[in-house]
Simulated assay, not measured.
Amino acid sequence: MRSPSAGAPCVTHPPADALTDPQSIKGFLDPEEGAALVRYAVATAGLGPFLEIGGYCGKSALYLGTAAKAAGTRLFSIDHHRGSEEHQPGEEYFDPELYDEVAGAVDTLPAFRRNIYAAGLEPWVIAMVGKSADIAAYWSTPLGFVFIDGGHSMTAAQADYDGWAMKVAPGGILAIHDVFPNPEDGGRPPYEIWKQAVASKQYEPVERIRTLEVLRRL
Score class of each variant (00 low, 15 high):
Pro4Glu: 03
Ser5Leu: 14
Ser5Thr: 13
Gly7Met: 10
Gly7Pro: 07
Ala8Glu: 01
Pro9Ser: 11
Thr12Phe: 12
Thr12Pro: 02
Pro15Val: 06
Ala18Gln: 11
Leu19Asp: 10
Asp21Val: 07
Asp21Gly: 05
Gln23Phe: 01
Gln23Arg: 08
Ile25Ala: 00
Lys26Asp: 05
Gly27Tyr: 14
Leu29Thr: 15
Asp30Trp: 12
Pro31Cys: 09
Pro31Lys: 09
Glu32Tyr: 09
Gly34Arg: 02
Ala35Glu: 13
Leu37Phe: 03
Val42Glu: 12
Thr44Arg: 02
Gly46Lys: 10
Gly46Arg: 08
Phe50Ile: 06
Leu51Phe: 08
Glu52Leu: 04
Glu52Trp: 00
Gly54Thr: 04
Gly55Trp: 10
Tyr56Gln: 00
Lys59Arg: 15
Ser60Cys: 05
Ala61Asn: 11
Leu62Cys: 07
Leu62Ala: 07
Leu64Glu: 03
Gly65His: 01
Gly65Tyr: 00
Gly65Ala: 06
Lys69Gln: 15
Ala70Phe: 07
Ala71Ser: 09
Gly72Gln: 10
Gly72Ala: 08
Gly72Met: 04
Thr73Met: 02
Asp79Ser: 06
His80Gly: 06
His81Gln: 05
Arg82Ala: 14
Glu85Trp: 14
Glu85Ala: 14
Glu86Asp: 15
Glu86Asn: 11
Pro89Glu: 13
Gly90Asn: 07
Gly90Arg: 11
Asp95Glu: 14
Gly104Ser: 05
Val106Arg: 04
Val106Gly: 01
Leu109Asn: 08
Leu109Tyr: 13
Leu109Pro: 01
Leu109Trp: 14
Asn115Cys: 15
Ala118His: 04
Ala119Asn: 07
Leu121Thr: 03
Glu122Arg: 14
Glu122Trp: 09
Val125Glu: 07
Ile126Val: 15
Ile126Tyr: 05
Ala127Ile: 04
Ile135Thr: 10
Ala137Met: 11
Tyr138Thr: 13
Tyr138Lys: 14
Trp139Arg: 09
Ser140Leu: 06
Ser140Pro: 01
Thr141Tyr: 08
Leu143Gln: 04
Gly144Tyr: 07
Val146Trp: 04
Phe147Glu: 06
Asp149Gln: 00
Ser153Gly: 13
Thr155Ser: 12
Thr155His: 09
Thr155Pro: 00
Ala156Gly: 02
Ala156Lys: 04
Ala157Trp: 04
Asp160Thr: 09
Tyr161His: 09
Met166Phe: 15
Val168Glu: 11
Pro170Trp: 06
Ala175Arg: 02
His177Gln: 10
His177Gly: 11
His177Lys: 11
His177Tyr: 02
Val179Asp: 04
Phe180Lys: 03
Asn182Gly: 01
Asn182Arg: 08
Glu184Asp: 15
Asp185Tyr: 09
Asp185Pro: 00
Asp185Ala: 12
Asp185Trp: 08
Gly186Phe: 06
Gly187Cys: 12
Gly187Trp: 11
Pro189Val: 12
Glu192Gly: 03
Ile193Asn: 01
Trp194Lys: 12
Lys201Val: 06
Lys201Thr: 12
Gln202Lys: 13
Tyr203Thr: 01
Val206Asn: 08
Val206Gln: 03
Glu207Tyr: 11
Arg208Lys: 14
Glu213Arg: 08
Val214Lys: 06
Val214Leu: 15
